[in-house]
Design a protein around this nucleic acid. Structure first.
Lengths: 219, 219
DNA sequence: CGTATTAAAGTAAGCACTTACTTACTTGTT
DNA sequence: AACAAGTAAGTAAGTGCTTACTTTAATACG
């Protein structure tokens, strides 16, 4: 049967100056991942369509399926890359080597606040994946989260041994510290608290460390 | 044209013992809201279909649209009811009247941890709505969240005035306290931390208040 | 109390559109 | 000419929502 003739979409895109041009396979794959990451972090897995990913990448939908067998596989590729990305929290652990005491807490707080501020997409992706019960939050928990908590607990035990920190439950104390930092970060970026409250993040980090170590009671 | 004849679904449901029976309009509306709340909190707005809501309620889809003009309107009805629900945080403010100092922090911590543990659906709904940029998180922020933070800030100022609390930034201190509590709660329930760490919530609440007031430094 | 009527609650079937994904083919590059 | 990258057109299934009709329950009346 005679084919319907319609205006080619990609050529229309090219005319508009937003079009993709042909790319080597690996480059195209990486571009799809980047665009998809952005959309998944904004809309979640179900809320993101392959049609929208293709549209934003300036390609046809079929190209996505040249690189990924299914939508789920694209999502998994993103999750995997984000948990092995050297820009993540293992990088943080590296920066903590050699630091002790207050400096550890300060470094952790500043790093986390800065990372979340600079690029909220990982935080959003992680939150969506926890809600949607995807693998990312499980993977993240088992790798980054427990690793960082473990590190802080060890640091707290060391401080107790050398007598500068009082007897506390290291696990609970680590959770308290991480909790105030990350919740601040999430409520500022995700919940819009930053419209009502804005401070330099170094100041906020400093204040949190101070409260954690010195408490709020007058002496 | 002659209608196709197939087995009525509702009668099939009735036979299976799970069927809805006829209900007065208000009762049915409430039932739809309850079922939909559960599904929206598990799957988000986009991830929940009207077919699935109807199936779980044991009714046909058309019944939903007898009560709500659109799916979006059903969602809004849920958001509204959850932010005016007397089981929410305004209830908390009521409980804080007359309490001072350490007792305020203790009551807030225990209450929030218990509420989230007993019914994580609101927390999930709120998190989904923040990600999906629905009205719930905005409404919640403007009502409950800022109200509670304001209350804590006032309490902190009062403690500084009477000399039992040292000079801190009340806004930052309130965020620090709320952050450790809520993040703990969310990470336990939503992220699955409770599989790796379990403590009686009174103990956790007590420890957080202690850290907030006394810090962790040995004196 | 029985019957007819009316109102309320509910359904089967469908519509128009969207979704993830496929396939046979075209275009561009080497 | 061969290969890689890409597309137009399509499929089967799913989605939010509508409509014309059926069923059930309540009410009025004799």
């Amino acid at each position: 049967m005679e084919r319907k003739v319609t205006k080619p979409r990609a050529t229309a895109l090219r005319a508009s100056g937003k079009a993709s041009r042909r790319m080597p396979g690996e480059e195209r794959r990486a571009q799809i991942v980047k665009v998809a990451t952005d959309l998944f972090s904004k809309n979640g897995f179900k809320g993101t369509t392959t049609r929208e990913i293709a549209r934003k990448a300036g390609i046809s939908e079929a190209v996505i399926f040249k690189h990924f067998s299914r939508k789920e596989e694209l999502y998994k590729a993103i999750i995997d890359s984000r948990c092995t990305d050297t820009g993540g929290e293992s990088f943080l652990i590296g920066r903590l080597k050699g630091k002790k005491g207050k400096e550890v807490f300060k470094t952790v707080a500043v790093y986390l606040l800065e990372e979340h501020h600079k690029d909220p997409s990982f935080m959003r992706l992680l939150t969506y994946s926890a809600l949607e019960q995807h693998a990312l939050s499980e993977l993240f928990l088992k790798t980054r989260a427990l690793e960082l908590l473990g590190f802080l607990e060890d640091n707290i035990r060391e401080l107790m041994r050398e007598g500068s920190m009082r007897e506390v439950d290291p696990a609970i104390a680590a959770r308290a510290f991480i909790g105030m930092v990350i919740h601040y970060s999430i409520s500022q970026e995700l919940y819009g608290f930053k419209r009502y409250f804005k401070r330099p993040l170094e100041e906020v980090a400093e204040a949190f460390v101070d409260i954690f170590l010195e408490g709020t009671t007058r002496r």
